[in-house]
Simulated scan of single mutants.
Amino acid sequence: MALTLYVDTDRWRAHQRSVLADFPDLIPVCKGNGYGFGHERLADEVSLLELPMIAVGTTYEAARMRELFSGDILVLTPYRRNEEPVPLPDRVVRSASSVDGVYGLVGSRVVVEVMSSMRRHGVTPGELGKLRTALEDVRLEGFAIHLPLDRTDGTDAVEEVIGWMDRLRSARLPLETMFVSHLSAEELARLRQQFPQTRFRARIGTRLWLGDHEATDYRGTVLDVTPVAKGDRFGYRQQKAPGDGWLAVVAGGTSHGVGLEAPKALHGMTSRAKGVARAGLATVNRNLSPFVWDGRQRWFAEPPHMQVSILFVPGEAKGPQVGDEMRAILRHTTTQYDRVMEN
Rank of each mutant, 00 (worst) to 15 (best):
V7M: 02
R13S: 06
D25L: 13
K31Y: 10
Y35L: 01
F37N: 05
H39F: 08
A63R: 15
R64M: 11
L68Q: 14
F69W: 03
I73N: 00
L76V: 03
E84V: 14
P87M: 09
V92H: 02
R94V: 04
S95M: 15
S98Y: 07
V102N: 08
V106G: 12
S117V: 12
V123H: 07
L128K: 10
L131W: 04
F143K: 10
H146E: 08
T155Y: 04
E160M: 06
I162M: 14
W164E: 08
M165G: 03
R167M: 10
R169Q: 13
R169C: 03
L175M: 13
E176H: 15
E176F: 12
H182S: 14
S184I: 02
E186F: 06
E186D: 13
A189I: 00
L191N: 08
R201N: 07
G205H: 01
H213A: 15
D224I: 00
K230M: 13
F234V: 00
F234Q: 01
G235S: 01
A251W: 09
H267C: 03
M269P: 03
S271I: 00
A273Q: 12
K274Y: 12
A277Q: 14
A282R: 14
N285K: 15
P290N: 12
D294T: 02
Q297R: 15
W299H: 05
E302Q: 14
P314R: 04
G319M: 15
P320E: 08
V322G: 04
A328G: 06
T333A: 13
Q336L: 13
D338L: 05
V340H: 00
